[in-house]
Amino acid sequence: MKKKLLAIMLTAAMAVTTITACGGNTGSSTGGSDATQNVSNPNAKYNVGVCQLVQHPALDAATEGFTAALRDSLGEDVNITIQNAAGDSATCATITNTFVSDGVDLIMANATPALQAAVSSTGDIPIVGTSVTDYATALELDSWNGKTGINVTGTSDLAPLAEQAAMLKDIFPASTYKNVGILYCAAEANSKYQAEEITKELTEMGYAVSDYTFSDTNDVAAVTTNACQNCDVIYIPTDNTAASCTETIDSVARPAGVPIVAGEEGICKVCGTVTLSINYYDIGYAAGEMAVQILKDGKDPKDMEIGFAKNVTKEFNPEICSALGITVPDDYKEIAKD
């Protein structure tokens, strides 16, 4: 009898925790953009599920762009359900499975594991990805012609690497800056891909390129110190771990006098000298426009080419550039301080 009572108590405790935590959602919706989007409209023509891998400024911006594009074209005709896996890749599978069993009309997968889970869940429901760097690797496709050939399309967050290499060459010529170090987190598939691609470009331009990888935030300082000792200039791709450790990197690299070229604006703002940056809101918005074409115009995702960021801006960090005595050409825009 007592045990039964205990079981009932525990179940009640679980229920209460669930409900209080749920109540927290409506109370504190300031942090996420999703709270208002989840209000369902019973008359909506389309249901769209968004699975985002983790809370991250870039991914949040992409999701925001995506929902904005859907709202702009379809207005109240679309229900958007946003779910965030909080960095747990197994939860992506739970989320996409829920979308499939709900029978949504389209799944938007934000980041690589979300896309892989979505593709594992369904072969029929159209899937639009964003913030995925390389679709061929993410989906393990043998041949690549710009389209996936399956129920998947979307936009890539690949930074324009050839242009970034050219920018590095303009400002830090190989004659004085011979050794380039590429600094990134070994655990991020996207960063590894970018490092490989830009290494090809830079080696062709006559630089000696070497990789400096850290495994998590704890060894960033040590790896950066090592890179500063051996390199004349450092390149950091769009790496999430590096992005969260920019202060650490800056406090090592600036005293050492080693300039950093960053793959995106957020990193450049704190520790970089120059960058060519892409805008995650834009690639999210472009993915949203593709979703509209699929839902409204009946286009087939397997015939749609993967989109890339169209607008890139050359930017520089005035504080670090003047500290290191680097002058940049006039067409570079000053990065706005927060």
């Binding site: 935590a21 927290g24 779910q83």
Partner: peptide, 9 residues
């Protein structure tokens, strides 16, 4: 939890 749209954070 997901069905309730509880914040996954």
């Amino acid at each position: 939890v997901l069905w309730l749209h509880m914040p996954t954070n």
